[in-house]
């Protein structure tokens, strides 16, 4: 499980200060799938980097159930896989760092690759695969790590629409089968509603949690029927309205958000 309490992050460059995150508090329960949406430039990535321990927050705290059990999937799949390692070794390397026994590692790697539908590509290099398949490798790597929480940073923003739908279903099925806790960051409202049990809406920068919404759609979802469900439409309308309100409310802060763009992208 994940607990974020009073998280604040201020970037300093010389004498200029930019407040990226103002005051964020939320929890993700064990085994939950939570989606974070917000207007672009709202500091989603800053938040994720703070949770992952890649950035030191200015104040506040982040508690992860088990710190070593945290895995992350980035948007830039092409740049987050090691181009000099095969698919198998890419998945295996974090496990070796975790000092998992060899036999168990082999098992985990094989299971993870099967789970994401990548049987038979073990000895290929990532750059020999399509973009969608590369992102599957990154997901397999995260899953094999057996994290107590899986962070996904706009993982499907750079793949085509068809592949994206497939990968969304993959995330749902992995989550249901493995019971892993997932925090999924996206700027796509439909995606957030389709995937999440709960959707957290962030304000524009400096960021606070604007609102949250429980997604009361059936657990079994599919691209065709779920998206046609009137309840789905109602939920997405609500999220959309909130995001628009967030943008309008902090219109004056957009200058500050602009200065942030290099850290946020």
């Amino acid at each position: 499980m994940l607990e974020v309490k009073g998280l604040r992050k201020v970037y300093r460059s010389g004498r200029r200060e930019v407040e990226a995150l103002r005051d964020l508090t939320f929890t993700v329960a064990e085994g939950e799938l939570v989606c974070l949406v917000g207007p672009s430039g709202c500091g989603k990535t800053t938040l994720l980097r703070c949770i992952a321990g890649l950035l030191e927050p200015t104040s506040g705290e982040v508690t992860v159930g088990d710190k070593s059990g945290l895995a992350i999937v980035f948007q830039e799949y092409g740049r987050s896989l090691f181009p000099w390692l095969t698919v198998r070794d890419n998945v295996d390397l974090p496990l070796r760092q975790k000092k998992v026994a060899r036999a168990r590692r082999r098992e985990l790697v094989a299971e993870a690759l099967t789970a994401v539908g990548l049987d038979g590509t073990e000895s290929a290099y990532p750059w020999q695969l399509s973009g969608g398949m590369q992102q599957r490798v990154a997901i397999a790597r995260a899953v094999a790590y057996e994290p107590s929480i899986l962070l996904m940073d706009e993982p499907f923003a750079a793949v085509d629409a068809q592949t994206r739908a497939d990968l969304e279903d993959l995330v749902r099925s992995l989550w249901q089968r493995l019971g892993v806790t997932i925090l999924f960051v996206t700027h796509d409202i439909d995606e957030a509603v389709y995937l999440g049990q709960r959707v957290l809406m962030l304000s524009a920068s400096p960021t606070v949690v604007q609102d949250e919404l429980a997604v009361d759609l059936p657990a079994e979802r599919d691209q065709l029927h779920t998206r046609a469900d009137p309840r789905f439409a109602a939920l997405r309308t609500r999220v959309y309205a909130q995001i628009q309100a967030a943008k309008a409310r902090t219109g004056t802060a957009s200058g500050a958000a602009g200065e942030l763009s290099s850290a946020d992208r």
């Binding site: 980097r49 992952a52 890649l54 992350i72 090691f82 974090p94």
Partner: peptide
Amino acid sequence: TDSVLSDTTRAYGITGVARLRHLLLP
């Protein structure tokens, strides 16, 4: 060295000598 790759390595706890061997040198 690519910044995303560097972040990935850190997020998976690959540091010190392992970081040198699996990230910086390659």
